[in-house]
């Protein structure tokens, strides 16, 4: 579950348009090779996000065994 977005306004708008906003469940599907992007599912949408950008999305994990960074 997303708790906060600590990103600049432009990216925040884009993320919100794609469904990533506080209170929303996200699920990490996989990570790319060579510390590549991560593959997420948010609602009915799948998307990819670079790890450094994902790091600015604060989440609180529902399942402690899979903590998305």
């Amino acid at each position: 579950m997303v708790t906060a977005l600590t990103v600049e306004a432009g990216l925040r708008h884009r993320l919100e348009a794609l469904g990533i906003k506080p209170g929303q469940q996200v699920k990490v599907l996989r990570r790319g090779w060579w510390s590549g992007p991560i593959h997420l599912r948010v609602g009915m949408t799948e998307l990819m996000l670079r790890q450094i950008d994902a790091a600015r999305i604060e989440v609180h994990s529902a399942d402690p065994s899979r903590v998305p960074r």
């Binding site: 990103v7 794609l18 949408t45 998307l47 990819m48 450094i52 950008d53």
Partner: peptide, 9 residues
């Protein structure tokens, strides 16, 4: 630039 991209079905 951050990269956020949809992966459509």
């Amino acid at each position: 630039e951050p990269l956020v991209l949809e992966l459509p079905p």
